[in-house]
Write a protein that binds this DNA or RNA. Structure first.
Length: 874
RNA sequence: GGGGAUAUAGCUCAGUUGGUUUAGAGCACCUGCCUUACAAGCAGGGGGUCGUAGGUUCGAAUCCUACUAUCCCCA
């Protein structure tokens, strides 16, 4: 016999390999089958599997495995994105270790290193997904920087440019002086840093007055374009319309008025430095101030600063502070904690910097994407995200798509000798355009200089659902026509705008069709304290360790059990243990069944009825499960399966058909038990693929065509609800008897007598075999009299007695009955109140009134029984 | 500063367009059991004035308003 404890590691790799060998994950268009398609949210090629991926990919795998079993042509496309900033940073670091500086390399040389890095270290995450059981079609793996996908990106850029959606413009970017690149907002980490607030005196022009400004960045005073005060600030009436002198460089600047200035903060006088602060830049725009950029790309001061030229910004800060002190213009230094942005990659302090960038105009493009989510052509699950989506789309801002990097698709814009530019797919086409534009046929490719910047990685991934099926390279190909639009997208709400919305925009703009029907937004996996998992906190468990310790099935189940769509999941290792426990439970149930010897004896009544009952329960559960799946309630679907297996199959069904120890089981019961078990394995397979396939194959040897992964998903058949309801009466009775055993300390081995006082004997007779077996009864006797010296309890309004000499504590019994009586009276009271309300009777639907009346009569009957009981106890 | 979301048992959450309900599940907890599938198990049990205050309604956890708290996004 197999081990009493389920050991996942022994079987998981075996079955994954088996599925791969027999190409069960592979998909190709099949006109006779309905396609079911998911494209993976491409993880960062440098990434490692984290808990978010685990959750997200488990959900995708559940959906795809179920669809496959439903006979659909299930296709899950895997792949990675090239993550320009992250990858470039990794490559730069690796080169640094080898003693090579990026600046010493040509673009081509650098790209060669980068590709080498990608081939060697990239995409580990996809290998890790295999451990989780992800049934992706690995032959279809794509990468956003591969040739075909890059060609799509360039094509789209040229197309948008021609349509007038792409332009160049000035923008304040998050500049990383170490990485020498602009960063996206989400690549900037804000940290609280202790710093100083310097109070500096500026002389007011034409007198001996001075004003005081407070700044954390004194090294930027040379770039000041104005001093700004709040127009409502009465303290500074005398400054209005005057000018101030920047100390040290003695430059005169205007004093302006703007509401932006916070009268409470600092001194109420703000130095305005448009080139080096986003808010100041906006004030500058309002007041037509000059932009004086005094900081180089590497963070040193340039000649426009006039002083300290060539010094690093932080050294300059110290030096200038010293100069203030010497000149007596430093009024005071204050300790201050400021929130400073740091580069996620290099940890350098971010320098706000104005630069010329490429943008996509969004206002027009967004329209179909906005409408089709609002009218549910594309459904967001849960729908609460429609609000967020709406807000974003209504306030959409132009998309900055250029990045000052090499790893990515180089922008296909070519500058002409006169500074103008042309946009074209290739250098050859660009040259033709240039000749035309300049009216100069003597131009050669040497006269053109291609833009150095590359495109934002999102500018690749917004095409993902189309480009993975070669929808640009070969727009009318079989795959694209068959698989697109895809069915479901599973991702996190944090990239609803960055990625999801942009894919929808691209889908409509380039193909006139939505990219997917449904977007399932998962929650964020947090630790037990509700904190986001991060490397810094070290609060994230290693997913591969979890799989090693609890099995992929255990981890999958644990993650799904408590993660409703859109809700954050507080991850606790206990969840994985619960998942494993469930697997172990099933493992042991199977051991029990497999251990039975079989004879051709007659089937006991309890077993005959148990089979009928479980079949009904199974079908009832299938209906519930289908309903949950149709609403993307994956967690609820799993919980329904969990309870069906644990409570109904193991705790009730198996106990009902189980022969006495050592006895064999009859053939019919055995067959039914195995058939039910097989159905359960099918339903559970999408959630726990490994364990279910293992047991499926242990039931009997099967050919690859009979593998569970491609078995047919069970369909709910019609069933008799009465069976479930009537059996429930027996189960309630069993619980009550077990309760009495527990409270009176009676061993389960001691057979008991049960008396039932009822008008409906049939209800108890029908499933009496269940009661005999599970409650261990000697006999059931129907009576019209009360039984003395017995413990009693109620099933609805029927009184049941178990004779028990001297075991009755009258006072305790009385207290219990009184409590129950009071509750029921209160309940009756609320019902009667409702029914005596004329407006209720007139307005409420008939069904509701009938229900209330039933509640009333049930409660009245119960009260009568309880009162009699109380009387007899006196 | 602007916007959004959430608030139900110790924890995590259901409660499906207001009516089977003086509220359900899983986990945790308590009690008793090593009953020959499983002690990572079995059987039983306790536990919530549905964030606060108003309002609409015959009827509110559910709809409306205000407040409080927490989280997220944008600046």
């Amino acid at each position: 016999m197999s081990a009493t404890k389920y050991n996942p590691t022994e079987i998981e790799d075996k079955w994954y390999q088996y599925w791969m060998e027999h190409k069960f994950f592979a998909s190709k268009p099949d006109k006779n089958k309905e396609p079911y398609t998911i494209v993976i949210p491409p993880p960062n090629v440098t990434g490692q599997l984290h808990m978010g991926h685990m959750l997200n990919n488990t959900i995708q795998d559940v959906l795809i495995r179920r669809a496959r079993m439903q006979g659909k042509e299930a296709c899950w496309v895997p792949g990675t994105d090239h993550a320009s900033i992250a990858t470039e940073a990794k490559v730069v670091n690796l080169l640094k270790e080898k003693g090579i500086k990026k600046s010493d390399l040509t673009r081509e040389e650098f790209m060669k290193h980068a590709w080498e890095w990608k081939e060697k270290y990239g995409g580990i995450i996809l290998q890790q997904l295999k451990k989780l059981g992800a049934s992706c079609d690995w032959d279809r793996e794509r990468f956003t920087m591969e040739e075909d996908l890059s060609a799509a990106v360039i094509e789209v850029f040229v197309d948008l440019y021609k349509k007038g959606y792409i332009y160049r413009g000035i923008r304040m970017v998050n500049w990383d002086p170490e990485g020498k690149t602009a960063l996206a907002d989400d690549e900037v980490i804000f940290k609280e840093v202790p710093s100083k607030l310097y109070h500096i005196k500026y002389r007011v022009e034409g007198g001996n007055d001075y004003l005081v400004i407070a700044t954390t960045r004194p090294e930027t005073i040379m770039a000041d374009a104005a001093i700004c005060i709040n127009p409502n600030d009465s303290r500074f009436e005398h400054l209005k319309g005057k000018r101030a002198i920047i100390p040290i460089i003695n430059k005169s600047i205007p004093i302006i008025e703007d509401d932006y200035v916070d009268m409470e903060f600092g001194t109420g006088c703000l130095k305005v430095t448009p080139a080096h602060d986003i808010n100041d830049y906006e004030i500058g725009l309002r007041h037509n101030l000059p932009v004086i950029d005094i900081i180089n790309d590497d963070g040193t001061l340039n000649e426009k600063a006039q002083i300290l030229v060539g010094e690093d910004r932080f050294i300059a800060r110290k030096k200038i502070a010293k100069m203030f002190k010497e000149d007596g213009i430093l009024e005071k230094e204050e300790e201050y904690t400021s929130n400073v942005g740091h580069s996620e990659r290099t940890n350098a302090v971010i320098e706000p910097k104005l630069s010329l960038q490429w943008f996509v105009k969004m206002e027009e493009l967004v329209k179909p994407a906005y409408e089709n989510v609002m009218n549910d052509t594309i459904q967001l699950i849960p729908p609460k995200f429609k609000n967020t989506y709406k807000h974003w789309m209504e306030n959409v801002r132009d998309w900055c798509i250029s990045r000052q990097l090499w790893w990515g698709q180089r922008i296909p814009a070519y500058y002409l000798p006169n500074g103008d530019f042309v946009v074209a797919k290739s250098e050859e086409e660009a040259l033709e355009l240039a000749k035309e534009k300049m009216s100069d046929s003597t131009l050669t490719s040497k006269d053109l200089k291609q833009e150095d910047d590359v495109l934002d990685t999102w500018f690749s991934s917004w095409l993902w659902p189309m480009s993975v099926f070669d929808g640009f390279k070969d727009p009318d190909n079989e795959d694209f026509n068959y698989y697109y639009p895809t069915n479901d997208l599973v991702t996190g709400p944090d990239i609803l705008f960055f990625w999801v919305a942009r894919m929808i925009i691209a889908g409509y703009e380039f193909k006139g069709k939505k990219p997917f029907n449904n977007v399932y937004l998962t929650g964020i996996v947090r630790d037990t304290q509700g904190r986001k998992m991060s490397k810094q906190l070290g609060n994230s468990p290693d997913p591969l360790d979890l799989i090693k310790n609890h099995g992929a099935d255990g981890v999958r189940t644990g993650l799904l059990l408590s993660s409703a769509a859109g809700n954050d999941l507080l991850f606790d290792i206990k969840l994985c243990e619960q998942g494993w426990n469930f697997g172990n439970k099933i493992w042991n149930a199977f051991r029990l069944i497999k251990g039975w010897e079989i004879t051709d004896t007659e089937t006991p009544e309890a077993s005959v009825k148990a089979q009928k009952w479980f079949e009904a329960r199974l079908n009832q559960s299938l209906v519930e499960i289908e309903d949950h799946f149709s609403k993307f309630r994956i967690s609820d679907a799993l919980m329904t399966v969990y309870k069906l297996i644990w409570d109904d199959y193991c705790s009730l069904y198996l106990e009902l058909v189980k022969p006495p120890y050592g006895d064999p089981i009859d053939q019919k019961s055995y067959d039914a038990t195995i058939t039910f078990f097989e159905e359960l394995m099918k339903i559970l397979h999408p959630f726990m693929p490994f364990l279910t396939e293992e047991l499926w194959q242990q039931i009997q040897s099967r050919s690859p065509k009979e593998a569970l992964i491609i078995a047919q998903w069970p369909e709910a058949k019609s069933f008799d609800e009465q069976i479930v309801l009537q059996a429930q009466v027996a189960f309630d009775l069993i619980s009550q008897i077990r309760n009495i055993r527990a409270s009176k300390g009676i061993s389960p081995k001691e057979a008991l007598k049960l008396y039932v006082k009822t008008d409906e004997q049939i209800v108890y007779e029908k499933y009496s075999a269940f009661i005999y077996k599970l409650a261990n009864l000697e006999t059931i006797i129907f009576t019209s009299e009360k039984i003395d010296n017995a413990v009693s309890f109620l099933i609805k309004s029927d009184e049941c007695f178990i004779p028990m000499e001297g075991a009755i504590d009258v006072e305790k019994e009385k207290a219990e009955v009184t409590k129950d009586l009071e509750y029921t009276k209160g309940f009756l009271n609320s019902v009667v109140k409702k029914l005596s309300n004329e407006r209720f009777v007139n307005n409420a639907p008939e069904q509701v009134i009938a229900m209330e009346k039933k509640k009333q009569s049930d409660a009245e009957a119960k009260i009568k029984t309880l009162e009699e009981r109380l009387e007899s106890l006196k």
